[in-house]
Amino acid sequence: MIGTVYVLVTGPGGTVSASQLVAGARSLGRPVTAVAVGAEDVAGDAALAGADRVWWFGDQSGRPPEAFAADAAKAVAAEPGLVLTGRAPADRAIAGAIAAAMTAPVVVCATAVEVGAGSSGLVTGPAAGGLVEQTVEYASPVVLVGPALAPAGAAAGGGGAASATEAEMPPGPLSEAHPYPVEQASLTPAGGQKANLGEAAVVVSAGRGFKAQEDLALALALAEAVGGELACSRPLAEGLGWMPKDRYVGISGNQIAPEVYIAIGISGQLQHLGGVRGAKTVVAVNSDASAPIMTAADLVLCGDLYNLIPAITAAVK
């Protein structure tokens, strides 16, 4: 398939769905090949999302997608092309193997892509921690990781295979695959609701200004009162482990554009603010008048969150 654009999917865990990726790839006006890695239903989802062709790399052994990185990379590198994928751990692991096999540059969170003749093109994406946006001219295929070209809620158009059974399986029978010796010993499903920060009009976000996990009840009460979602800064999700990882905001996490973003006890480091540039109104509640968030917010409440948040929640009610 000359000039195909690859969509790499590894499972439902990512923040970008197979149909968003296929829709993004379609917008480039090229045939779309889905590279489905892992469980068989991943390939089914990719076919249903409307890819023209689906390659499935996986087996019924319950091996994680990472085990098939070399097989997927070899197949893509044999017919190099632009690759689009999400940012889940398995997406990144396989995208990296593909980049290595194609000698391809990697661009994370690209904001614009223009494909030219062959596999050349212009890709725009963040650089220097999000301080600037760079447009780079590539003469060969690029691996795009993160929500490039993925309109939220987009459904892929027709033209693709209707079901997994119609989809083309990878070149060469899977028995010739050489999975890496990586096995999943156990998976304890995550409790709680899957976050949907992207769609919330109001996001209430908690940072290290909270002294204990129980105190997050204050932020949750406010989020519930305003019908919004609860989010956090990265240290609360990674390190402290007070919040699930899919709820943190920033350049490495969710990039959101709510009507109102309420940052409570968050200092407002560059890496955090990169996730809320698109917010319409930013409210900061922080006891430190010199915290960076105080100059990056529209409405600033300098004071103790433990006094202010209950008062705001009461006022909303």
């Binding site: 447009t135 100059t295 990056a296 917010a297 529209d298 600033v300």
Partner: peptide
Amino acid sequence: APVTAQVKVSGPARRCVQIDTTDPATAAA
């Protein structure tokens, strides 16, 4: 690969309006 353009990312200008927090209830309102 050559960089053909590089622009500063600024996002919308924020207003930084200070709300007096001496009394939490008044500040909330």
